[in-house]
Design a protein around this nucleic acid. Structure first.
Lengths: 219, 219
DNA sequence: CCTAAATTTTACCAATTGGTAAAGCGACGA
DNA sequence: TCGTCGCTTTACCAATTGGTAAAATTTAGG
C-alpha cells in the first residue's frame, strides 16, 4: 500500500499516470529495461523522480504495467481472426491490421521486441498462459483451412511467425528501413508488397488442391 | 595509447580479447548497450573489470568492436548474391544462408536488433556508408531480374526486408518461438516454410510475364 | 637466475542509479 | 480560520556504475 493511491483515480492521477506511461514507453522501448532510468522517464513526463514514484511502486511496476497494457492491444487482431470468414481475406486483413499497428505504434512493437530479446524474463508466464492457447487455437483454424483446401498448404505456426516478423519489421527496424529507403514513407509500398506476398502464398494453386494434403505425411 | 597494447598481439592478448568479446556479445545482445555493465561482461569473461579495461578503452569501444566485426559477417551473404546466377536459386540460397546464421549465431542477430531498436545511434555511419550502397546495388540486380521476367514482379527493397525479418525472427524472438512451438527445434520446419514461401513469391507466374514491366527506365 | 615488460590485482573515485523520508504546498469543507 | 487530504518538492541514501592509479604479480628473454 505504500505507493499507488487506492480507490477512485482522480483527474490529476489519470493525467500523470498517463504522462508517466507515455514517457516510459518511449524510454523502455528504446533503451530496454536495464538501460532505462527513472530520471529519463520522469523528465520525459515533466515530473520529478520522487513524483513518479508517488504514482508507481518502482521501475519494475511501470514496466509491467506497460507490458500488460500492451498485450491487450497486441493480441486483439489475432483474436479477431474469424474461422467463419473467407480464409485468404481474413489472413490478409490480419496482415494489414498488424502492419498498421506497427506503423502507428512503433514504440509498442519495440517494447515487445526488447522484452523478447532479453528472453522474456518478465513475461514468461504470460506467453505460456495467454499467448500460447490463443496461438494454438488460431493455428488449428488455419490448419483446418489448409485441410479443406481453402488456402494453400502451409505450416500455420510458421505462417504466423512470418506474418508477425514482416509487419513488425517496419517498427522494430525502422531506423534501418528509413535509411535504406532514403527516408521515404514505406507505408504504401510495404502494404502492397505484403498483400501481394501473402496472397501468393495463401491462394490455393489451381493445380494441386486438397487431394494430397488431407492427412498424409508430406515430404 | 592508453589502452590497447599496440604492435603484435600476444597469445594471451588474443585469448583475453576473445573471451571479453564473447562475453560482451552475450551481455550486449541481451541487455542492450545501456543495460549492459562492465562487471557482467568481466565476470562472463572470467576477468576483473580493470583487467577488461586493460584490453579495451571502455564500454563503448567493446560495443563498437563487436558491431563492426558483426557487420562483416552479416553483410557477407548479401554480397554473395550473384547477378549471373539463377535468380530464384540465388534468392532462395540467400534465405537459407540467412536462416542458418540466425539459428547458429542468434546473439549476433540480437545485437544488431538491439542497436536498431535504439535507432542505430552508434551505427548510423555504417548504415549509410556500407550497407546502403550494397543494398542499392542488390536492389538493382533484383529489379533487373524482375524487368527481364526472370522472377515475378516484386519490390526489391521490401523483398529484402521480408527476407531479413523472417529469418532473423528465429533468433530475435527465439524466446517466443520456443514457447509457442513447445520447445521443439524450429530449424527444419522454418527452413522448408521459408523456401516454399519465397519460391511462390518469386517464381514467375505462367500467366503474366514481362509484358508490363519490360524495360522502362528504372529511375 | 635476473631483469624488463606485460599482465593482473587492489584500492579507489566521482557520478549515477533506484528508492525513501519528510517537509511543503494547494484546494476544499467545516 | 482551521485542518486535512492529495500532491509535489527538497534533501537524502546505499548501491552500482564506468573508469583510474598504482602496486603486485606473472611472463618472456637473455
Amino acid at each position: 500500500m505504500t505507493t499507488p493511491p487506492e480507490k477512485k483515480p482522480s483527474r490529476i492521477q489519470m493525467r500523470n499516470r498517463r504522462l508517466i506511461l507515455d514517457s516510459a514507453l518511449e524510454v523502455f522501448s528504446r533503451d530496454g529495461f536495464g538501460g532505462a532510468t527513472l530520471d529519463s522517464i520522469a523528465s520525459g513526463a515533466g515530473l520529478s523522480k520522487p513524483n513518479v514514484l508517488y504514482y508507481f511502486g518502482g521501475k519494475t511496476e511501470i514496466y509491467i504495467t506497460l507490458l500488460s497494457q500492451l498485450l491487450e492491444t497486441w493480441l486483439d487482431p489475432l483474436i479477431e481472426l474469424d474461422p467463419d470468414g473467407d480464409p485468404v481475406s481474413e489472413l490478409l486483413a490480419y496482415v494489414q491490421r498488424k502492419l498498421d499497428m506497427s506503423l502507428d505504434l512503433p514504440a509498442e512493437s519495440k517494447l515487445f521486441a526488447v522484452e523478447m530479446l532479453q528472453g522474456a524474463p518478465r513475461m514468461g508466464t504470460y506467453l505460456v498462459n495467454d499467448l500460447k492457447p490463443l496461438f494454438d487455437e488460431k493455428c488449428a483454424i488455419i490448419q483446418d483451412w489448409v485441410d479443406t483446401g481453402r488456402i494453400a498448404p502451409v505450416d500455420p505456426a510458421h505462417l504466423i511467425f512470418t506474418l508477425w516478423s514482416t509487419t513488425q519489421h517496419y517498427a522494430d527496424f525502422g531506423a534501418q528501413v528509413s535509411v535504406l529507403l532514403d527516408h521515404e514513407n514505406p507505408a504504401a509500398r510495404a502494404s502492397s508488397h505484403l498483400e501481394q506476398m501473402f496472397r501468393r502464398l495463401l491462394e490455393p494453386q489451381a493445380g494441386q488442391p486438397l487431394t494430397k494434403s488431407q492427412d498424409s505425411a508430406p515430404d
